[in-house]
Write a protein that binds this DNA or RNA. Sequence first.
DNA 1: TAGGGTTACTGGTCCAACCAGACAACGAGT
DNA 2: ACTCGTTGTCTGGTTGGACCAGTAACCCTA
Lengths: 228, 228
Amino acid sequence: MPLSGQIHRQLMDAILDGTLTGALPSERELAETFGANRHAVREAIKRLQQGNLVEVNQGGATRVLDIPAHAGLDLLPELVIARGTFNDEATVGVLELRACIGADAARLCAERSPHVGAQLLDLLPHDAMSDAELAATGAAYWTALVTGTDSLPYRLALNTLMAGLEAIDDSPTAKHFMAALRDESRRTADLELLARAITRSDPAAAHATATRLLNTSITAVRNAADRP
Amino acid sequence: MPLSGQIHRQLMDAILDGTLTGALPSERELAETFGANRHAVREAIKRLQQGNLVEVNQGGATRVLDIPAHAGLDLLPELVIARGTFNDEATVGVLELRACIGADAARLCAERSPHVGAQLLDLLPHDAMSDAELAATGAAYWTALVTGTDSLPYRLALNTLMAGLEAIDDSPTAKHFMAALRDESRRTADLELLARAITRSDPAAAHATATRLLNTSITAVRNAADRP
DNA sequence: TAGGGTTACTGGTCCAACCAGACAACGAGT
DNA sequence: ACTCGTTGTCTGGTTGGACCAGTAACCCTA
């Protein structure tokens, strides 16, 4: 990993930990403590700034912002694996958000792009698939569905949420989450039902089926989290 | 605006225009064409990288990524005012997303934090309010409601969506959008109904009321867009 | 013609300055 | 003793030039 990337990560972790609050040390100081050049530090800070984690003032100090009040959804991947360990609460939140948006996307897709239903039928999982293939097929399924909404914001929201969920892979403490998501990808019956609802332009059925499908994972994960 | 910020903006615009595709010119070239130092260019590119707009490879070229496939929701502000002029289609998408998430947040808030209802009653608009006060009160209302979901992801989603809608301010071609959003903030009756549904822990009513409230703005905006 | 090595390009890092804005400490005037 | 302006020193912003570290294309050889 490039040096500026390492610095970015360490600063990010410190901010999410709460280790780093208020005013950051000066760029010159940070450069010295990290044993790096000031430019490397600046590039790291530029990325934090882009993520609305810090506020930079020429002449004044760079300050850490209140995360819940200022950060955007692109923080999800960091949140899910914050503090080095897996963060159950945040991940359930991501799944809830996904259920809400996914169901609405299904509705819009049924309204606007019924022809996508046929594509979705080609993206149903088989029993013979490996875990990796399963994940890829699942991602392709939802990508196609969301593309059918004809709405770039929905598409971007899917990207952001999937990035958040992919962060789970990096954490060994999250096996039950992975398992629950795999189980969801294997629910061929519901996935097919959803595809057919879209094909026949039935927004209400699409919404209902998607809600059921996506909420099942949430309860599965909740149960697994309670008895680990 | 800092120089690196200007460069960032120009590159971003060129990417969203489709003017800039495939491989970017080298950092040294860009520095020369912008009449700036290479470090300034690098900082701009670091921000593009953080937004998943470009892919940087040491030794190889920096390439523009496929935006719908890779960018995240934090791109919304840029999207709404892309190409210098206002982008109706994207903005309607943002409103739809907001309606979907806002209604779900209302449901969760009613389930988990009924006490927030009282706060919301204090954040109802008065007739005497100026446009700025109205906007501030509206923002505070939804912030309090989303905080009641006890879910950081929902909070971050709100931040991202509000950032997208605030970008409208910068565009003079979007008066009808501004007007529609102001009208929404003035719908005291529905806002109060929603607050009371939350107070009495009635998720279904909260969801329904929020949906009605938020969808009204969408149709209002659609009508205004058709007859400008 | 197929292979490998050289070379010219890419981004990554460093150093050492200097510019520009903010802010606090200090001293003159009241 | 208090107020207010000046000034010094801190902050981030920008510059130039140099070198390291990869990639990829090119050319020369077997």
